[in-house]
Design a protein around this nucleic acid. Structure first.
Lengths: 187, 187
DNA sequence: AAGTTATCAAACAATGTGTTCATTATTTCA
DNA sequence: TGAAATAATGAACACATTGTTTGATAACTT
């Protein structure tokens, strides 16, 4: 279902529903949001909602998926990075993209979204970077997983704090910080 | 409201409700759990539920709070630890306690519970440990916060994975791993 | 044993859910 | 452009959950 091949009506409907949902999500946790409310705010029939989404959670999931799709595209243009400069740059790109879409991101990455989404974003940037280091160092598969997890989740934590604090620092700085901490752990 | 001062009936009611809730939480996410279902499984009147809890989320919150209370007690017996051995031991204690109460913990710390709860547990063990290192190193307050966050959230990630993997490794090993990674970051 | 307090069953209006169906509006493409 | 295809709509529906209130009953405390 690429947005290109969609009927214009469908595009409009989905756009309005997502917009409405995001707007409501700013005010209350997802558990308190009703389908009815989403539809009223979007001025979309409730039956139409059910034609596209199962419930609020399915809707959130789809928003997140679309987001990751975008991020992947942003990264696709970057060649596989072997040097530090390139790694940091990849991280910076992602973090910069997050800043551009601050409104939605700060929602999805705040307490509102779910932790899995955080992880997925960070893993995109680091997976290949970590893969190399698995080889370089002589780590058991399981140990490597634990360390990988430590780094990934920690990085997510940092990004989240940065967002909550209003994204005042430049993205490069955060990217550099994550990279440095990662290196230390892998020393 | 310490459990000591409670009417026996109240103790019983709350016990049954929590038990029922935990049991249901194994099968479905909290959002899909209804008050009615909790009460039926607990054989408690619905009106009685509302006398004690606002909703499922309030109930979960209270379960988590009780849990943290327990953990704090477990730690209270440990003197302020300055050496590595003592720090690791403190971590091991917590992780060991988690293992003892595996059933509930694996729920609260899995995707089911919320991230804040993870953080709160780990912070208990590390707060004072980190405090020292803020002084030793010359870090700006903000930088220290970011690094602290990286470590805390990363540690939570490791513990979570350990639980999900069935807690096969001994608790000391995980404690040692967290300590080592923490030290590396702070190097 | 008497007084206090928690739980209970039953009932209630209010609200949301998920689905169906005929009707209307928009889009697609031949 | 005009016909066929498709999507959105409004209304209605049975059903479930919610949160609250009532007076009666049972258990606890002192």
């Amino acid at each position: 279902m690429s947005p290109k091949s969609m009927d214009r009506r469908v595009k409009y409907t989905i756009m309005m529903i997502k917009k409405s949902f995001i707007s409501i999500l700013k005010e209350k946790p997802i558990a308190k949001i009703t389908i009815k409310q989403i539809c009223e705010e979007a001025d979309i029939n409730r039956a139409t909602f059910y034609a596209h989404f199962k419930d609020q959670y399915d809707l959130l999931q789809q928003i997140e998926d679309g987001f990751l799709e975008d991020i992947k595209l942003h990264l696709a243009s970057i060649a596989y990075s072997a040097t530090e400069r390139e790694s940091v740059s990849a991280l910076e790109r992602i973090i910069g993209y997050i800043k551009e879409n601050a409104e939605v991101c700060s929602l999805l990455l705040s307490d509102r979204g779910n932790l899995d989404f955080h992880k997925r974003i960070m893993m995109i940037a680091q997976t290949q970077f970590i893969a190399e280091l698995k080889q370089k160092k002589e780590l058991s598969a399981e140990d490597a997983e634990y360390i990988f997890l430590f780094i990934t989740v920690g990085s997510v934590g940092i990004t989240q704090k940065w967002i909550v604090d209003g994204m005042k620092r430049p993205a490069v700085e955060i990217a550099q910080m994550i990279f440095t901490l990662t290196e230390k752990v892998l020393l």
